[in-house]
Every structure is written in C-alpha cells, then in structure tokens.
C-alpha cells in the first residue's frame, strides 16, 4: 500500500521512456492483478504509468491473429475470429476470473499475472520471489495449489493464468519494444521463466520493455480445440489443474496435437511429451491415456498436491475425448 505517483502516458514511446527512467516505475493497464498485490504490500512501485487507453485492436494479417496488449480479456474471448478459429483461447479466457475482471484485464496484463501462493501474497512471511534468498515457506507449508513441474528449491508457485495456457498451446509470439527502441518477438515458451535460483525474475522482459501485442499463428486445425478446467467451485476460482488441447485428425490418426496444462507448472506448461505421444497415434481413449501419462512424467509433487498428477491426467484425457468427439 505504498503510495505512488501516477501519470497517463500519451503514447508508447512516452510510456516506455517514463518507466525506463525510474527503476521503481511500472506500467499499469487493467490493474486487476496489480491492485490486489499493491494493497497487500507485495507490489511497491513509486510510479505508475497508465497505458490502458492505448488503442486495443484485434487484427488479422495473412492468417496471423494479432491482439494488441491493451485488448481486454472480454474483447478477445468474444471476438468472432477467436471463437471460430481458436476456441481453446476463448474458453480459457472465459474460464478465468469473472466478467467484471475480464472487462478490465488486458492481454498484456494477463501475461504479467503473478502467482497465487499464499506466502507470496502475505508480506509477513519470507518469500524468495519478494525478497531474494529469504526462504520459501511453501515448500514445507500449505502447497495444495502449487506446482508439480518447473519448481526449484527456491520457489514452487504455480502460474495462475488460464489464458496463458491456451497461448502456450497455440505457440503464440509476444511482441515487445525495449527502451532503446528495439522491438523483438519472444516465443511464448521463452516469455515466462522458471524460478531456478532467481524466482524474483519472472519474465524475459527488461525493465521498461513494453508488451505491444501477442500474435497467434494461423494454425487452421486449432478450430478443433478445447480448454478444460477443474477447480474447487464451478466458476471464479483458480485451476487445480487445467488442460488446453488441440487435435488434427485424419481418418483415425492424429496428425497434429497441442497440449498444455495449467495449475501444474511454475509457468504455463506445454507438454511436447504428450504431443509426441499423440502425433501418429490413433484418436482413441487408449492413446489419450498414454499421452496423459507422458504429460505427467517427471512431475514432482509436494505434501499437499500429490493429487495433481492423477487429476491432471484424467483432466487431459477428458479434454482430449471432448475434442475428439467434435465435428
């Protein structure tokens, strides 16, 4: 709840210049995730630069779908191109948060969403993410909601986003602009970082680097895709586990597959293991069970989240069965 100064940026260059000039400055757009953590004392910027009013458009060029960073979650989820071509993305967004939050939250903000670890969110506990090298009480604490993939002995927090799970499955690209004016394309798998020894560094972004857009490749067969989320109540809850899947089927063979999981990884967790198991296999339950089994290989559960292995497997199988039964 540290007090900050605030300014609405006039354009992208202005925004980047202002944030780059102050190591304690941040961009703000929808603010849904930031304000929650600011009130908890987790976020403590000196200065906020508001980019919410930047144009937020959804455009298609040569089949590639481009979402400006300031498009809202609702705008993306209900867009006809998204609904028709990438149902997994629309469904994932609509499985997250609430209508009010989706009207505020943006595409860029969703990528920057921080985790839901109870210890991270309570500043009276140590946390390596908040204070490097202070310790991680979650490893031996209440870790039911935590990750089983990509953890380190410094941090086991699960990535909370639903939208990002779909973007991971679709192989999206994040377009950014750096303070020096350089723009770059970051593959989705490289955007979020594993905690390793530096859990406080969560993304590939430099300070002052602004997300301008997210691009989704044409992927015509992704119209046969689905997002399935399992949670403690029927809406407005974070995932225990979730699955984003897409299948291309020819005859009785799977020729292309995308699989990503939510609620299990320290970042949105794409599973090449499951995809490899599916590609070339028959589109039946047996193959789906084998793929789910491959997907969960190497998972490392903690005291209270052992269930995630079995639940993630059965959720994946259900998601694959649902996609398979379409058309």
């Amino acid at each position: 709840m540290k007090h900050f100064t605030y300014e609405r940026a006039s354009d992208r260059t202005d925004a980047i210049t202002q944030v780059a000039a102050n190591p304690q400055a941040k961009f703000i757009a929808g603010g849904t995730n930031f304000m929650d953590m600011w009130k908890e004392g987790v976020e403590t910027p000196e200065r906020l630069i508001d980019i919410r009013k930047f144009p937020g458009e959804i455009t298609v060029t040569d089949g590639t779908l481009r979402l400006d960073a300031t498009t809202t979650n609702s705008q993306v989820a209900y867009h006809s191109q998204v609904r028709d071509r990438y149902p997994v993305l629309s469904e994932a967004i609509l499985a997250g948060a609430s209508p009010q939050l989706r009207n505020m939250a943006t595409t860029g903000g969703n990528l920057m969403q921080r985790n839901r670890c109870s210890y991270f969110h309570d500043v009276s506990y140590p946390c390596n993410k908040r204070v490097p090298n202070s310790g991680c009480p979650a490893i031996e604490g209440i870790n039911r909601m935590h990750a089983i993939f990509g953890t380190s002995d410094r941090c086991i927090a699960a990535h909370p986003s639903d939208m990002c799970v779909a973007l991971a499955a679709l192989g999206a690209v994040v377009q950014t602009r750096k303070p020096d004016g350089e723009t770059r394309n970051i593959a989705f798998k490289d955007f979020h970082l594993l905690p390793g020894d530096t859990p406080h560094i969560e993304t590939a972004l430099e300070h002052g680097e602004l997300i301008e857009a997210v691009e989704i490749p044409p992927l015509p067969w992704a119209k046969r895709s689905h997002y399935l989320k399992v949670r403690d109540r029927h809406s407005y809850a974070y995932a225990l586990v979730s699955a984003a899947v897409a299948l291309e089927i020819e005859g009785d063979k799977i020729v292309n597959a995308r699989v990503a999981m939510g609620g299990v990884g320290t970042k949105p967790w794409r599973s090449p293991e499951a995809e490899n198991a599916l590609i070339g296999a028959k589109n039946n339950e047996e193959s789906f069970i084998a793929a789910a089994s491959a997907a969960l290989e190497g998972a490392k559960p903690y005291q209270y989240n052992v269930f995630k292995i079995e639940l993630a497997q059965s959720t994946l199988v259900q998601a694959l069965l649902t996609v398979n039964s379409e058309q």
Partner: peptide, 13 residues
C-alpha cells in the same frame, strides 16, 4: 457501460 470492479480501479485512471 461495462461492468467493472471499482475496488481494483484507480479513480485517476
């Protein structure tokens, strides 16, 4: 005209 939660919105914004 769109529903939002005012607790996570800054007045200045």
């Amino acid at each position: 005209g769109e529903r939002v939660v005012s607790c996570l919105s800054l007045a200045a914004a």
